[in-house]
């Protein structure tokens, strides 16, 4: 086996390799594509095992009856699981809850993230420390974050209500009230993920070309005009990338809801992935859970496709 360029291969065909003792025609060579495939094989096997196999297995389970005793799908049931899922009010409600969460949480995190990044971009003493501190929420496990915030928001023992009480507000039932519970989940998620947007935004801001600003300045552009007509258009690709990455992360969120509210009160914070998790790993209804997961995957892929198109259009517009 050898790795060789086409030129070397031609040479090798003309003269035997020194010391090999083999004739050139009998030597086994994979050639460049073969060698490339050889090196890619471990990664492809891993990819197939870790990504494609679970996806196809989920699809298979979604069209089957799942036998718990054998712990494998048995019997093709066609669209039965999908029909049941589409009639399941809990699933439809969880999609709605997820929609509410995404519509509020994502723009909030994007706006906050970029606003903070702009503030951190200005020279001031201690911004390096603050930038480092911003990383802390990202390294806290989501379940821990949910648990800690649950304690902070507790009406009797929590510091948030204690502080509000000092100015005569409360006690507020942050987790016990259906509307406030969703607000709390969004708050915890925003606390956890805004720093990620800040990081991406800060990197984008630092990479902005200085000469464009000099040109804007010499053209007499005001700060506001520079912001609207130079900075923001240049940052659109970064914003689009950050949004798509956050979207993909947010759409699979369930751990914070599980730790903080368990999807309650009622179904008010029961996001779709939590619903699927409960259905699959608590109710052990793997057929239904797989159908739901497949539907969510399809919906996510369609929405992601449109998000990519929108972001590309925005990039071209500016």
């Amino acid at each position: 086996m050898s790795v060789s360029t086409p030129a070397r291969r031609t040479g090798a065909a003309k003269a035997p390799v020194r010391g090999s003792g083999n004739t050139p025609g009998r030597r086994f060579r994979l050639g460049e594509p073969g060698t490339a495939w050889l090196f890619m094989t471990p990664a492809l096997v891993l990819l197939a095992g870790m990504l494609l196999y679970p996806i196809f297995y989920t699809l298979w389970v979604s069209f089957s009856d799942f036998d718990l005793a054998l712990f494998q799908p048995t019997g093709w049931v066609g669209w039965k699981n999908y029909e049941a899922v589409l009639k399941d009010p809990g699933f439809l409600e969880s999609l709605k809850v997820t929609g509410i969460y995404l519509v509020i949480a994502l723009p909030l995190q994007m706006i906050l993230g970029f606003a903070i990044a702009f503030l951190l971009n200005v020279e001031w003493r201690g911004r390096g420390v603050l930038r480092a501190l911003f990383l802390i929420p990202m390294v806290v496990a989501p379940v821990v974050a949910g648990g800690i915030w649950r304690m902070l928001l507790d009406p009797l023992w929590g510091v948030v209500n204690y502080t509000l009480g000092l100015v005569g507000v409360g006690p507020v039932e942050w987790i016990g009230d259906p509307t406030l519970a969703m607000a709390s989940v969004i708050l915890i998620d925003t606390w956890r993920w805004t720093p990620f947007v800040v990081l991406i935004a800060a990197a984008g801001i630092m990479a902005l070309p200085g000469d464009v600003y000099e040109a804007a300045k010499s053209d007499g552009a005001t700060r506001r005009q520079t912001m609207w007509h130079v900075t923001l258009p240049l940052l659109v690709p970064v914003m689009a990338a950050a949004f798509v990455v956050r979207w993909l992360g947010a759409v699979k969120m369930f751990d914070i809801a599980l730790a903080a509210t368990k999807g309650g009160p009622g179904n008010s914070t029961n996001v779709v992935n939590l619903y699927i998790y409960e259905k699959g790993f608590r109710g052990l209804e793997f057929g239904s859970a797989s159908s739901m997961a497949t539907l969510v995957l399809i919906i996510t892929m369609i929405l992601t496709y449109f998000l990519f198109r929108i972001s590309r259009r925005l990039e071209n517009r500016w």
Partner: peptide, 11 residues
């Protein structure tokens, strides 16, 4: 107590 609607085992 206030917030008891979130009471599980530990609270």
């Amino acid at each position: 107590p206030p917030g008891a609607s979130t009471y599980q085992f530990n609270e």
